[in-house]
Design a binder for these strands. Structure first.
Lengths: 141, 141
DNA sequence: ACAGCACTTTACGTTAACGTAAACTTCCGC
DNA sequence: GCGGAAGTTTACGTTAACGTAAAGTGCTGT
């Protein structure tokens, strides 16, 4: 048996993170991470007072930050996380509500996708005009 | 001459909008539009006290709202608008600064594009799991 | 034993982006 | 000439998402 020995890492996912580590890696302040916890978006384990973050906690934090990059509020990011963790409420209407939210979010993403494409085209034009102006300046007739 | 007569619309772009019209069409409040003006993002003509919006003003407003949908701050939207209206400052370093901002914005958009794609995949997975659960419930063995 | 560093809680401060209310003016139809 | 709708200014209020400061805890190297 290759992995049955008493290795320092019984399971490959046993790794944990301090709040400072996560803050540096993901480029946020510790204040921000604690704030997200206050808002109920994170619930790390504790060793005494100190927070211990699991890889899953780290993933949740990354989800929040990705939402932030897309302009989502924390409430919206919370919804997205709940979509990912179906909370095991196997009720019927709940599932339909889930589906509705999924489609709603998808519609929003589609809109953003379109907005981005248009904006990219406009940036292309702006860059083009910019280049032309530089040309006209460098070797002005 | 076909268009030299004193028609009600001398030029095809002579149309104007009231603040209320724009608010209804673009689904914002008049307060919001006035706020954007206070922030220097809009400068409509005036007839007396009353604001008169040109088609160009309307475009600017739509640009702001699109930026908002992408999570941009008003300051960022202002920058984007300035990129589109090069302000005719034909200086050299200014042009390079413009190019830099363009590339910066493009990088940001690229990041958002990537975020959206990943998030769409996750929504697909979530929907799939949701469907399966509904299956298991409707005709439970 | 003690400095130093990372962590903790508590609490008040700040900024952006509006909302909301009050108190006008202007125009339009009747 | 008057009520209502749509416009205006001024000003204070609100919410989200943290920033910042104060004061304390806990380990770690020397």
């Amino acid at each position: 048996m290759s992995q049955t020995k008493n290795t320092p890492q019984p399971r490959p996912d046993a790794r944990t993170f301090s709040i400072g580590e996560l803050a540096r890696e993901l480029d946020v302040t510790t204040r921000t991470i604690r704030f997200y916890e206050d808002m109920g978006l994170l619930t790390p384990r504790r060793r005494g007072q100190t927070r211990i973050y699991s890889p899953a906690d780290r993933v949740r934090l990354k989800l929040i930050l990705r939402g932030k990059r897309l302009g989502f509020s924390l409430a919206e990011s919370r919804e997205l996380i709940e979509l990912y963790n179906p909370a095991s409420d196997n009720n019927r209407g709940q599932l339909q509500a889930l589906m509705d939210k999924i489609h709603e979010k998808r519609a929003q993403l589609t809109q953003q996708l379109h907005d981005i494409e248009v904006m990219q085209l406009e940036l292309d034009e702006a860059e083009q005009r910019c280049r032309e102006t530089m040309q006209r300046i460098t070797h002005h007739n």
